[in-house]
Design a protein around this nucleic acid. Structure first.
Length: 577
RNA sequence: GCGGCUGUGGUCCAGGGGUUAGGACAUGAGCUUCCCAAGCUUGUAGCCCGGGUUCGAUUCCCGGCAGCCGCACCA
């Protein structure tokens, strides 16, 4: 059994991750989060919120998971996210149709499917495997399509990423932030991709959760005011150059920016925050690296892009986060599609003075003279440079005809104008997190087995911050005199909003093991000394050691331990074993 | 989507054209002053789905679904 099998088996058995629709045979690429998985996922998302909403001052929004067609025309998902496929009629092999004619047509992407098929037929392209005839082209789009309202008139698509919600709300977000850069907006939610062949469990899903931030910044200033907070952080980087040499480098974030390895401070800042988030969530530092996209794998508009990759036992290095400088591509696309103005007015530090030629055609006279053509003449006059306006007569060309204009009909002068700022389209830094992949990676990186008295002990060493069961309350035996105080303690802990597991079944050792396996960090045990001395024990998951504390103090101590405000060894007196 | 392998209680596995499908672990109830998967008593729970062959199918055949591996695909 490899690690993946062990972890997935545990996750299924103990209620973290279940195949969806199992009752009806299931469907590939869909999973349920069970009673422990759902709180674990929420814990990871809440930690993400702490990092990317609270501490950065970004806002969280929530948009529909179904989008109208224009959004995905603009984003490129409608055209770029679908592949033209063709199938061999003999051996049923499937090919990307455009790939088959690459050597004939330079830009096959530009062709319609019928045209690709014609090129295939005219150039005698056959199945590369068996030489058989190829079928007509059919489109496979990775977006789930649906229809909005009755009649099938308005198509809708399940969103393939949450990012577009932030882009299409840009004008309102800008106003929310009172017309100033930089600002950020985030969204945590489901996205959908109709993958051809989802494999690898929760790594490749058809419905998955993303946490994405879109940070809108001034393209002229990509420094970051809080860069100093992360400059000394050491990370494992796998840069473009490093990939060519086949080696990773340990480096501080500051050094990476100084050497030009990471494009600029702002990108590096969020790479660093990503590192902190992942390690606090429970990703192992020595199985985490940041890999830079090579030029040919990066989208053409992107300036720089770094993926956080984790090392998984079965799958090798897997991408779990992408942090990209997408420049102004997305906003420009939506400007073109929607005709809306998605710019920000940026004042200059100092107003600039500029000389400007102002041309004023005398419309009172030009109007009667040229009637319908007057506007075209005036436009042509206004486009002329100074020298041409000084001629007598002034020559302009309107609709291919040369027209002579009396200089008396037009006045012009140089005006000194003060320019206080300019309209710009912000650049976007996009950290994009795959929550499901992170959750699985946290499980695998937290899982360990150790030998205890000849038995294998399985432990999920989850971080307190994300753990689904925070504390177990266990009477030493299922007897009334122990059960009563144990139930009382469980009630008290629940009263503090802790997620408590109360368990009185079987032997105490078995219950410790069960809780170890799902990561419960602390177990409170009620024994006969509780009745005699008024104390209980707290057991630490990782060390298996126990301390004894007063019953009345156990709740506050457990809370302090969970928050990391108290060391375990200092929370009570050690239990003689 | 193609090919190969696989599908039996919650988990892991055994089995087999014919009465009641077997084990281990897990799990419920009970006993036990018992702190690391102990013990005893006693329960619950299964042949992936559909069709075919057959007197009879969990077993054989076909299809579907799911899992694993390979190919293809992967903004």
């Amino acid at each position: 059994m490899d690690m993946y099998e062990k972890v997935i088996e545990l996750a299924r058995r103990r209620g973290f991750i279940w195949p969806a629709f199992e009752l009806y045979g299931g469907a590939a690429g869909f999973y349920d989060y069970g009673p422990l998985g759902a709180p674990l996922k929420r814990g990871i998302e809440d930690l993400w919120r702490a990092f990317f909403v609270i501490r950065e001052g970004f806002c969280e929004i929530e948009c529909p998971t179904i989008g109208v067609e224009d959004i995905y025309k603009a984003s490129g998902h409608l055209s770029g996210f679908s592949d033209p496929l063709t199938e061999c009629k003999e051996c049923s092999e499937i090919y990307r149709a455009d790939h088959l004619i690459k050597h004939i047509i330079e830009v096959p992407d530009a062709l319609a499917n019928e045209e690709i098929y014609r090129v295939i037929q005219e150039n005698d392209v056959f199945c590369p495997e068996c030489g058989g005839d190829l079928s007509e082209i059919y489109e496979f789009n990775l977006m789930f399509k649906t229809f909005i309202g009755p009649g099938g008139k308005q198509p809708g698509y399940l969103r393939p990423e949450t990012a577009q919600g932030m882009f299409v709300n840009f004008p309102r977000l800008l106003r929310h932030y009172r017309d100033r850069l930089p600002f950020g907006a985030v969204q945590i939610g489901k996205s959908y991709r109709n993958e051809i062949s989802p494999r690898q469990g929760v790594i490749r899903l058809r419905e998955f959760s993303q946490a994405e931030a879109e940070i809108f910044i001034n393209p002229r200033d990509k420094t970051h005011p809080r860069f100093g907070e992360v400059a000394d952080l050491v990370m494992t980087l796998y840069s473009k150059g490093g990939q060519e040499r086949g080696e990773t480098e340990e480096m501080t974030v500051g050094e990476a920016v100084d050497k030009g390895i990471i494009a600029h401070e702002t990108l590096a800042y969020y790479v660093a925050r990503t590192y902190q988030f992942l390690t606090e969530a429970g990703i192992s530092k020595d199985r985490l690296r940041f890999r830079q996209h090579k030029d040919d794998e990066m989208a053409h508009y992107a300036a720089d892009c770094w993926d956080a990759e984790v090392l998984l036992d079965r799958f090798g290095w897997i991408e779990i986060v992408g942090v990209a400088d997408r420049t102004n591509y997305d906003l420009r696309s939506h400007m073109a599609q929607s005709q809306a103005n998605l710019t920000v007015y940026l004042p200059f530090d100092e107003p600039r003075k500029e000389e400007k030629l102002v041309v004023k055609p005398d419309m009172k006279k030009l109007g009667p003279l040229f009637r319908k053509g007057a506007k075209a003449v005036a436009d042509a006059l206004q486009a002329l440079p100074m020298e041409d306006l000084k001629q007598d007569p002034i020559l302009v060309e309107v609709d291919g005809e040369k027209v002579e204009i009396d200089p008396a009909l037009v006045s012009f002068e140089m005006v000194e104008e003060e320019i206080r700022g300019e309209e710009i389209v912000p650049h976007v830094i996009e950290p994009s997190f795959g929550i499901d992949r992170i959750l699985y990676s946290v499980l695998e990186h937290s899982y360990r087995e150790e030998m205890v008295e000849g038995e294998t002990r399985a432990v999920l060493a989850l971080q307190n911050r994300v753990v689904p069961i925070q504390v177990a309350v266990l009477p030493l035996m299922d007897r009334a005199e122990l059960v009563a105080p144990a139930e009382e303690i469980a009630r008290e802990l629940r009263g503090m909003d802790l997620r408590v597991e109360y368990d009185s079944s079987g032997s105490i050792g078995r219950r410790y093991r069960r809780n170890d396996e799902v990561g419960t960090p602390y177990s409170v045990t009620v024994d006969y000394e509780t009745l005699e001395e008024g104390t209980v024990t707290i057991r630490d998951r990782d060390s298996m050691s126990q301390i004894r504390v007063k019953k009345g103090e156990v709740a506050e101590k457990v809370l302090a331990l969970l928050k990391g405000e108290m060391k375990f060894s200092e929370a009570g007196s050690p239990l003689a074993s």
